[in-house]
């Protein structure tokens, strides 16, 4: 194997990727939102929660295999328990901002904080 470590083409590759990533990130920040959590299991929405409206902590036990328990509290949602091995979903911590996402692949469960068409309510 006699490939050189570095050629000019590498710079082009890295630049193109950086530009694309930056553009995508800019596009993401343009999206507006409201603090709303969506729990989906296997692509189907199980529950939609307005995190602003949550007054005290409650837990949602999902009937998945492996079993997961999602906790909701004022302004945040997170995986509290999961009967899987890696606990990656629990390591995601508390989701409280637009776009925050936690995924439990074994349980096919996604929790995401998504935007709605209204930023704030007046009443």
């Amino acid at each position: 194997m006699k490939t050189k470590l570095f050629r000019k083409g590498d710079i082009a590759v890295i630049l193109v990727i950086l530009v694309a990533a930056a553009a995508f990130r800019l596009y993401q920040t343009k999206q507006s939102d409201k603090l709303e959590a969506v729990i989906t299991v296997d692509g189907k929405t199980v529950e939609t929660i307005d995190l602003s409206a949550v007054e005290s902590k409650r837990v949602i036990e999902l009937d998945t295999a492996p079993k997961v328990v999602i906790a909701v509290e004022k302004g945040a949602i997170y995986f509290e328990e999961a009967e899987c091995d890696d606990k990656l979903c629990i390591n995601c911590g508390k989701l409280s901002r637009k776009g925050d996402t936690a995924v439990c692949l074994p349980a096919k469960t996604v929790v995401t904080v998504s935007g709605s068409d209204v930023d704030v309510m007046t009443y």
Binding site: A53, D119, T122
Partner: peptide
């Protein structure tokens, strides 16, 4: 930002 005016007859959200 878009500000929602509450539905006077519906729930607060």
């Amino acid at each position: 930002a878009s500000v929602g005016i509450r539905d006077p007859y519906g729930n607060a959200g």
